[in-house]
Simulated assay, not measured.
Amino acid sequence: MGHYQLFSEQKIPASVEEVWDFIASPQNLKEITPDHMGFDITSKHLPEKMHPGMIISYKVSPMLGIKMTWVTEITQVKEREFFVDEQRIGPYAMWHHQHHLLPIEGGVIMRDIVTYQPPFGPLGAVANAVFIRKQLATIFAYRFKAVEEKFGKFG
């Protein structure tokens, strides 16, 4: 069973504090997720900021509009530098998502590294080649635009 990685990087014309406050707030996840994903947070009483051990549950429709439960755990947080979320229940056999912020002149680089393994062994590898990789690229392209609308274009 193969695993895959997706890398995304975006320069943002804002301070580390501003970007961190936005991305470290679970309530903002829906704002940067395409509507067609049917993304809804189902956790009750979420704190304003992520912390290690925090569990967040969602409903998503990754394929054919079929609603699925997705549960992630925030496993690591280094304030204003990075956090990691890992799937506990959901559509992937494995999902590990690193979110990094790096200060640069004039703003911040937001870098994501997603390591994932589709379900269903060899069939998952085919599904990744046919649509999963493309779907993830579409989701991150949407997020890029949503973040640009929120903070502006860099340079």
Rank of each mutant, 00 (worst) to 15 (best):
F120H: 10
K134H: 11
A137M: 08
K134I: 04
F140M: 05
I113D: 10
G124H: 05
P119L: 14
G121Y: 14
T115F: 04
F140G: 01
I132Q: 01
L136Q: 04
V114M: 04
F120Y: 13
A127T: 03
N128H: 09
G121T: 11
R133M: 09
R143F: 03
K145V: 14
R133K: 15
N128R: 08
R133S: 13
Q135C: 01
Q117T: 13
F131E: 06
D112R: 06
P118N: 11
K145H: 15
P119Q: 15
P122G: 05
G121N: 14
F144M: 10
Q117P: 05
T138C: 06
Y116D: 08
D112S: 10
F140P: 00
L136D: 07
R133P: 08
G124L: 01
R133G: 09
F140L: 00
V126Q: 05
A127E: 01
Q135S: 10
T115L: 02
Q135D: 10
A137L: 08
Q117W: 03
L136I: 14
V130T: 10
A125P: 05
P118Y: 02
Y142P: 00
F120G: 07
D112H: 08
Y116A: 10
A141F: 09
A127R: 01
K134C: 03
R143E: 04
V114T: 01
I113T: 15
V130H: 04
Y142W: 06
F131N: 10
N128Q: 07
T138F: 06
L123R: 01
F131S: 12
Q135I: 02
F140N: 00
V126W: 03
K134A: 10
K145N: 15
P118K: 07
I132G: 02
F144C: 09
F140C: 02
T115Q: 09
F131Q: 06
I132F: 03
K134T: 08
P122T: 11
R133A: 12
V114N: 04
A125W: 15
Q117D: 02
T138V: 10
T115W: 03
A137S: 09
A125R: 14
K145Y: 14
F131K: 10
V126M: 05
I132T: 01
K134P: 05
T138W: 05
G121F: 15
Y116T: 11
A127P: 02
D112T: 09
F120Q: 07
F140E: 01
V126N: 01
G124R: 05
K134R: 14
F144A: 13
P119K: 15
P118H: 04
Y116C: 09
A127N: 00
Y116E: 09
Y116R: 12
T115S: 08
V114F: 00
A137H: 07
K145R: 15
P122I: 13
K145E: 15
F140R: 01
I132P: 02
Q135Y: 04
K134Y: 08
L136A: 06
V126D: 00
A141W: 06
F140T: 00
V126I: 15
T138A: 10
Y142D: 01
F120V: 11
V114H: 00
P122W: 11
V130L: 11
R133D: 13
A127W: 02
